[in-house]
């Protein structure tokens, strides 16, 4: 595993700082006991609407890809960013491969526990598409807005 972080559109290897992790269940049971925790792990079958606690105290929220095919965390990441206003790091853990990173980044992930080969080449995956058709949690302007802008400029 290699930790990669997204910074200004590029994926850079990051030092693995020690995280004080706590699972959502453990933290909900006894927040005092986990007052030192800096990272929250949320399983991918958790409904974020039911979390009902302040996530902003955590510098990292870790979402899980038990298999690359299991895409629930894509929705969870978008909800954290777009609905719950979480601005810290959202980190992908589990089956995190080169060819999924583009989608993850668009959904709001900015930390990756990269599990595939050739981590140093993973950054290229972010360069493969110049545009996006739809808005998501990143700052890409959808193609339809670019069309409008272009028409307005003409």
């Amino acid at each position: 595993m290699k930790l990669l972080k997204l910074s200004r559109g590029r994926l850079l290897p990051a030092l693995e700082e020690p995280l004080a992790e706590v699972s959502l269940d453990a933290w909900r049971d006894n927040p005092q006991e986990h007052a030192e925790a800096t990272a929250l792990t949320i399983s991918n079958d958790t409904s974020l609407a039911d979390v009902k606690c302040d996530l902003h105290g955590f510098s990292v929220i870790i979402l899980d890809f038990p298999a690359f095919k299991d895409g629930r965390a894509y929705s969870q990441a978008r909800l954290l960013r777009e609905r719950y206003g979480y601005t810290g790091e959202i980190r992908a853990r589990g089956d995190v491969l080169r060819d999924q990173i583009f989608f993850m980044a668009r959904c709001g992930f900015n930390g990756f526990e990269f599990s595939g080969p050739n981590a140093d080449e993973a950054s290229a995956a972010l360069e493969e598409f110049s545009f996006a058709y739809q808005p998501a949690a990143d700052d890409a302007s959808p193609i339809w807005r670019k069309r409008l802008d272009r028409a307005a400029a003409a």
């Binding site: 095919k69 583009f102 598409f129």
Partner: peptide, 13 residues
């Protein structure tokens, strides 16, 4: 078609 093409949230349903 355009909205669903490479939809980042819905590519691993």
């Amino acid at each position: 078609r355009q909205w669903s093409t490479f939809h980042p949230e819905f590519s691993f349903l």
